[in-house]
Amino acid sequence: MSNNEKPQKTTDLHIGDAVPGCKKKDPMLVIDHVKKTFGGLTAVDVEHLEIPSGVITALIGPNGAGKTTLFNLLTGFDTPDTGAWSFMGTSLSGVPSFKVAQMGQVRTFQLTKALSLLTVIENMKLGAKGQSGESIFRALFPGFWKKQDEDIEVKAMELLKRFKLDTKKDDFAASLSGGQRKLLEMARALMTDPTLVMLDEPMAGVNPALTQSLLDHVISLKGEGMTVLFVEHDMHMVRHIADWVVVMAEGKVVAEGPPETVMKEQAVIDAYLGAHQETDLGEVTGRINIIKGEDK
């Protein structure tokens, strides 16, 4: 897909006004009164939030807004002080993180967790669900798992191609570059065939050309019915693929809505985007003029 071709956006997701905490027509995640404090600091304090199904939702907000913490809470990696949330109608409060993942809600980490001393392909195969060879008794006899393992490998190789990692197949993950690790982690998460994939800054450190192709991949995932929730600081990307945007600041949801409208809201501009979002950074700081001056 080329740059000028706009991806098909899903619209009309909400009921009533697009205000913080508004109801969705078909919510996948419903969050109520989730609060988490660290000592005196309130990291997350979400009154009500619904994440729509089958679409791509972006979670944005300034550094320290509580986005990663919210991810941790929703996926069972941390426990909130109070609050409840449900995933496709099932309550997830107190459900351990691995069960959350088994139910189809899979996340990646902002600080990459590549399994360094496993090869790239092993990393990928680890992601696959329902492997009979992962039970200790069947593991002893390859007859039980050999066939399945081969199928998984084929699937893993397809994804690796997509993520331009196929040539690194047999390298230890430790030898990958920072961006490649990010890619590997995302590909590994996709190996689980998630219903909802939660990506914490997936494209940080990935080069523009590859970002473009991966975004296309994410959009095609949406086409296959997968729901995506991602945290991202790159507004071009958010605008490009998100169907819905949730803005957090100081632990609270301060705005939500379709990307075009939400980014024009004064609260969002004040808290996060800044007044000069459309202008080039060079002009904002005045450095470009100075350089130009020197050139003359």
């Binding site: 993942a101 899979v106 990646t108 967790k113 590549a114 001393l117 992601g127 390859p142």
Partner: peptide, 29 residues
């Protein structure tokens, strides 16, 4: 030897590297 060449062994080695990551993939670490 039989265990460590199997998918079970893969999970175990994954846990050695980073148990949070393995947990995030739905394994009961």
């Amino acid at each position: 030897w039989a265990l460590m060449r199997s998918p079970w062994g893969r999970v175990i080695k994954g846990i050695r590297e980073d148990e949070e990551a393995v947990r995030s993939l739905g394994k009961n670490v």
